[in-house]
Structures are given as structure tokens and as C-alpha cells.
């Protein structure tokens, strides 16, 4: 197990390093002169030179990278040009929207997908299985932002039950915040749930064909115990892998749903920053989201150790 852990930690650190290089290269190196990108072509050379010096762009690129990375590791992602406040603080201020949205969408995804996938697998090639597969096939085809628009059309425009967007915050208790995130979380989680249903079904089906399941049934173990004890736990590794990847995708997908429902989260922060050419904010948000995705994947790798003893004794 120690070898497995060492390899995963090394890979995790290396991946984070490459992510930081990518975020740095795209913003600092590709455009040629980021100061010109920020200020536009019509500004006098003196002002451009001043911004270049204040951003440290007059030093060699490897030096800039090392300094930038050192600051980023201490949580200093630079200062927003538009708001003149630290990018880290801006990101933190938007997390109370993006994080609960992602968590609620993930909760919906897991609550809907795993029972449905399990049901489909245990009713293989019967009506329930085909119905679950049709729902999942439709779910994968419907873009989350369109589903969001349809939900607004139904619940806000026609029924008048919900507002079409905006966020009520957490100051007045849990419910106003949760209510603002219900529709976007459903729209966000629906697509990923459709993917997870298929993964769950195929993973459970694989395990159900194993000899030990047949043996358990032959010994007269009750079907419920066969599914809960022998099947589900062994089927969890592939399900968890897919769910882990999807958690990252939910975080990225929240950017688009925030736009549909006018939620002041990380995605909106980045989109507004693009219009304002606020490069440090765009860089900070993308670095933060990409790193979060990698941390989630790493956490899933670590969970394998808990779930699958074979990895522990490898």
C-alpha cells in the first residue's frame, strides 16, 4: 500500500505542477505581452511599461514563474485589476455559491443515479431496465443549460413558483439559499446522473456475472444480501471513479449554470473578468477550479484504499 500511496502522491504533485505551468503559460507567455492585453493597444507605451514593471513582466519568464508559483502556494493569486482586491479573497467570496451548487448537484446525481443504475442492472433486459436506459440516454442528450432554461420556463414563467434567477444568500438561514440553488443544481446534476446511471448499471452487471455471486446465490444467500454485500461493494470502484471524474465536471459545469440562473459564483466572476480583461482573476479562477478537480481525483484515489483491500495489500 505504501508504494501505491507514494506513486499517487507523486503523481498528484506532478499534475498540480503541470496545471500551474499551463495556467501560467496561457496567461503570461502566449499573449506576448499581458500588459498590452489588459490595457489594449491604444494606451501610451509609458503606462504599458509601468504595468509591466508592477506585474514583474520585465524579468525572465522562468523567474516570473517561480515567483508566481511561490506566491500562489501561499494563497496570493495577485490583485484583481477590476476590483483592486486580492484574487484569493474574491474567489473565497464566491465559493458560498459555487460550492453548495456543486455539492447539491452531486447529491442529486448520486441519489438518483446509483439506485436507478442498480435497479436497471438487477432487472436486466426487462421493462425497468429499458426505461432506465431511455431516461439516461435522453438525459445525456439534453444540455444542462437548456434544461435550466426549460426549468425557468416551467417553474418561473408558467407556474410562478420560483424566481428565474439570483441568489438569496445564507444570511437568512439555510432555506433561502437552498431554494435559490434548487433548479440550477437539478439541471447541473441531471446530465451527470444520466452518465452515472449507465456506469452503475454496467459495473453492477459485470459483478453480477462473477462466480462468487453465483456461489452466494447457490448457497441460498438472500438476493438483498447478495446485492448489498457481494455486488454493490465490489461494483463501487468503477462507479466511484466515474463519480469522482463527474464531481470535477460538476464544478466546471457550474460556471455555465451560474450564467443561466444569474448566480454570483466563480463562473460569473471569471466571465465578468474576461470582459474587463482582468487576467489575474481569470488565471486565479481557472487555477483554483483545475486544482480542485485534481484534488477531487486524488481524494477518489485515496478512497480506493478504504474500499478495496486488494489495493492495501498490493
Amino acid at each position: 500500500m505504501r508504494r501505491y500511496l507514494a506513486r499517487r502522491v507523486a503523481a498528484f504533485v506532478a499534475t498540480l505542477f503541470f496545471v500551474s505551468v499551463l495556467a501560467f503559460v496561457v496567461i503570461r507567455v502566449l499573449p506576448g505581452d499581458p500588459a498590452l492585453v489588459i490595457l489594449g493597444p491604444e494606451v501610451s507605451p509609458e503606462i504599458v511599461a509601468r504595468l509591466r514593471a508592477s506585474m514583474g513582466l520585465d524579468r525572465p519568464i522562468p523567474v516570473q514563474y517561480v515567483e508566481w508559483l511561490g506566491r500562489a502556494l501561499r494563497g496570493d493569486l495577485g490583485v484583481s485589476i477590476q476590483y483592486d482586491v486580492p484574487v484569493g479573497r474574491l474567489i473565497l467570496s464566491r465559493l458560498p455559491v459555487t460550492l453548495p451548487l456543486t455539492v447539491m448537484a452531486a447529491g442529486f446525481m448520486i441519489a438518483a443515479a446509483i439506485p436507478l443504475g442498480l435497479y436497471a442492472a438487477t432487472h436486466h433486459r426487462r421493462t425497468g431496465d429499458y426505461a432506465a436506459m431511455v431516461v439516461s440516454q435522453l438525459g445525456i442528450a439534453v444540455p444542462s443549460f437548456w434544461l435550466g432554461l426549460l426549468l425557468i420556463l416551467l417553474f418561473s414563467v408558467h407556474l410562478g413558483w420560483m424566481r428565474s434567477g439570483g441568489f438569496d444568500g445564507w444570511d437568512d438561514g439555510l432555506w433561502p439559499g437552498v431554494r435559490s440553488l434548487l433548479l440550477p443544481a437539478f439541471a447541473l446534476g441531471f446530465f451527470q446522473a444520466a452518465v452515472l446511471v449507465r456506469a452503475t448499471r454496467s459495473s453492477v452487471l459485470d459483478v453480477l456475472r462473477e462466480d462468487y455471486v453465483r456461489t452466494a446465490r447457490a448457497k441460498g444467500v438472500r438476493e438483498r444480501a447478495v446485492i448489498a454485500k457481494h455486488t454493490l461493494r465490489n461494483a463501487m470502484i468503477p462507479i466511484l471513479t466515474v463519480a469522482g471524474i463527474q464531481l470535477g465536471q460538476l464544478m466546471a459545469g457550474s460556471i455555465i449554470l451560474e450564467s443561466v440562473f444569474a448566480l454570483p459564483g466563480l463562473g460569473r466572476l471569471a466571465l465578468v473578468a474576461i470582459t474587463a480583461r482582468d487576467l489575474p482573476v481569470v488565471q486565479g479562477v481557472t487555477l483554483f477550479v483545475a486544482s480542485s478537480i485534481i484534488v477531487i481525483n486524488f481524494a477518489v484515489d485515496m478512497l480506493y484504499v478504504v474500499l478495496d483491500p486488494r489495493i492495501r495489500y498490493d
Binding site: 496567461i27 473578468a273 474576461i274 481569470v282 483545475a290 485534481i294
Partner: peptide, 20 residues
Amino acid sequence: VIDAVQGFPAILSALLFTAV
């Protein structure tokens, strides 16, 4: 490198490129 690229869903790469 592939792991790192996987940390950048299309929407993040698009955000980065569009900023520049």
C-alpha cells in the same frame, strides 16, 4: 501532462484562451 490537461475541462481552457 495528460493528467494536468484532464484538470482543464473545455470550459476552463476556453476561459483562459478567451481572456487572452
